[in-house]
Structures are given as C-alpha cells and as structure tokens.
Nucleic acid binder design. Sequence first.
DNA 1: CGAAAAGGATGATCAACATCATCTTTTGCC
DNA 2: GGCAAAAGATGATGTTGATCATCCTTTTCG
Lengths: 219, 219
Amino acid sequence: MPYSPGHRDATKATIVRAARRLFNRSGFDGVSVDQIMAEADLTRGGFYRHFGSKSDLYAEALQCFFTDPGWDSNWEGVEIDRAAADIGPQIVRAYLSHQHFEDVDNSCPMVALPSDVARSGESAKRAYETVFKAMVDTLQHGSRPDGHSGRTAALSIAALCVGGMVVARASDDQAFADELRNACTAVALRLGGWKEGRNSRRPAPRKQRRAKPRMPRRG
Amino acid sequence: MPYSPGHRDATKATIVRAARRLFNRSGFDGVSVDQIMAEADLTRGGFYRHFGSKSDLYAEALQCFFTDPGWDSNWEGVEIDRAAADIGPQIVRAYLSHQHFEDVDNSCPMVALPSDVARSGESAKRAYETVFKAMVDTLQHGSRPDGHSGRTAALSIAALCVGGMVVARASDDQAFADELRNACTAVALRLGGWKEGRNSRRPAPRKQRRAKPRMPRRG
DNA sequence: CGAAAAGGATGATCAACATCATCTTTTGCC
DNA sequence: GGCAAAAGATGATGTTGATCATCCTTTTCG
C-alpha cells in the first residue's frame, strides 16, 4: 500500500477546490483540464485517475457552504454561524453581500454557474438542485415558524438571493448592481419576517453581526 | 446598388435571431460561427461582413421582449398586451410560465445566459443590464402607485422572476422546478400588490397545490 | 535495501473553431 | 443584355482541448 490512505482523497479534494475556483471564474467550457490540474499544482497526467471525465469533476465542484461541511472559503469579513438562531437573516445578508459579489473565485457556484448547469447533464443539475434545496431548508428552519407559508417564503427568499446576485454579476453598472443587491436584501429579510414592514425606510441593512472566532481563513 | 436596401438588415436580423436561439441553447462557447450561419441558412462566409466578431453578435443577441419591439417569439399560449393596465401581473405570469420554462430556444436571454454574460465583456453586460432595467421599469409603471416602495418592489420582482427561472432551469427534478416557479409567482404577485396578501381575511383562494412526491434520491 | 503498486508526467491523437483571404453569385441600374 | 458592387461561399491557417496509452517517481512494507 504505497502512499498513505488519505493521500488520494486529499489530492482529489485539492483538485475539486481548484476546479471550483476556475469554473466559477470561466465556466465549464472556459477551463481546460490542464488549467485545473495546474491550479492544483499537478499536471494533466493524473486527472483521469480521479475522475472519469471533466463533467464528473464538474458535478463535484458545485458544492457550496450549504452542503459542504468543509467549506472554508467564507466571503471575507462575512461570518456565518450555522447554529445561531438568526441563521436566516445571516444567510441573506452574507449571500447578497458585497464580498460575495466581488469574490467570484470563492463564490457559491449557484451564482457563478447557473446557465452552465442548465445546459449540462443530469449529474450537474442534480448537484445544483441539492445545494439549492439545502439553502431552502436552512432558510425555512431559520424562519419563524408561521406554518404553511414557510416553504413558499423560503423558496422565494432563496430565489431572490440567487437571482439578485446573478443579475448583479451580469450587469455592467456597479451602482445599479449595488442598488439591486440592497433591494433584494431588504425584500428577502421582510419575506422572512426578519425586518420591519415596508414602511421602515432605513438606508441600508448595514447591521453586521460580530464574528464569532471561527477557524482562520486560509492565507 | 445591387441587392435591395433592406436586404442587408433583414439578413442581419436573421442571423441575430438564429444566434439567439443557439446561444440560448448552448451558450456562447458552445456555439460556433459556422453553426449560427447554418441555422440562418447561410454559410460562414458572410459573417464578418455583418459583425466584427462573435462577441459583437453576442451583445446584439441578448435583446428580449422588453427591449426588442420586433420580438415575436412569445412563449406559446402566453400573450402579453403591452398596453394593458395589468401589464405587471401579466409579465410575472408569462415570465414564470411553464411555456417559458420549456421553450429554451425562444427564452429570454436573461434566463438562459446570465453566467455567460457575467464572464463576458462590457458590451454584453451592458446589453444584459439594459434589458433588465427595461423589465424593472415596465414592472414599476405597471405596479400600483403606492409610492416609494415601487422601485424596490420592481427590482425584487424582476430578480425573483429571473432568479426563479434560472434555478428552475438548473434543476433536475421537474416537480421541484414547478414548485419553485409557483412559489416565486405567488410571492412576486404579492410584492406587486396584484394578489391578496397572506393576511387577507377572505377565504384563501382555491389555488390548491398538491404535494408531489419527492423524487428518489439518487435518481 | 529492493520490489510492488499507486500516483504523477509526457507525448500523441483526433477533432473543433475563430478568423481571414479569395473566389463566385446575385441584383439593381443603364 | 451587361456591368460593378454587394453578398455569399469555400478553403486555409494556426491554435486549442479532451482523452488516453505509456513511461517515470514516489512511498510503504517485507
């Protein structure tokens, strides 16, 4: 048994992380296997020992915070405490944050790759759907338990988070993108019951939670 | 002056329409100039007489119902009357309709190509933004004039329409995609003031949804 | 130490593709 | 009819990419 047993998995995880970065940046077609392996400090040689095809890797690279327990690349300055009671508004604010908007490499793939996935095969779509459902579930349980509308609200809050971010990224005018993110944040918080009604006209939801000392971000 | 004066423009429009269909289906990188010209019943030869590059064509192909007066490929069975007083709810329903969901070729490019555009150059982003802003304006003016919240509501309704559709298209489970579209439609209509709110005292509208069984996990 | 087995590197193959230079066809005008 | 210009067709070019077969390296164990 040459090579320690964990080595293989570690290498694979490294490739997946590198792939996520590159896919987020350039999409499925915009990235070559060579580039991915180079980003992982390897060469193209070993790729097909880990993955059956580029598409197989793609499906694995679509995980995000909501499904990947090892997700460590939180958007800078935006901390999320999974166990907190106010996980709902935390997610909304973090997801629609300026940091997430800017940090394409470590973006949630749901924002960076939706139309790529729509054109992809079953496995990629399944992976995407799984992440989105996990987001919805987290939002629903973090929402106040007001019964049957919780599911509808959670679905639309998630769609608002993803949609607002997707459109913001596809826009050229930064000021407009900001306005859009803020509008979506406000409405999403209201839908979740985490904010005063429509007549409270605060400038922007600047309220940032104190960061609990979590594991330090990687360098 | 060989060829009638309108011929050139007509040919160009044909190419753009063909390109929109193919881009919607396969994305920018997934389509070759040859394919586009073939779809337009031409050969690759004349392409560069009409467009400086493939990217130039891309920006022109991003138009949609909201900005293109000649937009004729409405989603089957979904009619929109631009002049009607209830243009707002009409747009929401049409945009999140099953027909639009299915008809990828004639889809609004905002749904089919957002992440492609996010990775593209300035001109594509500008075109995308223009279409989105046109949608927002149409929604805002079609919304009931309840003052200051109109803009925020219009922005988030548009984001909800685009986002819901984008995620639905990226999902593998049809039943889930349907549930999501319905949820987004309901919430968007409420946000626009075009539907009874959740606290409406009258008996709930008979819009009853049946719980579809979840799909098997591994699928 | 030396072998075995898995990991990793290299070169080759086969297929696309954007773009352009160069022909050929079409058509309005005289 | 005939012609010149615009539109369209064709072939070439240089590059890139996914995938795989094969060769070299590293690591663990006897």
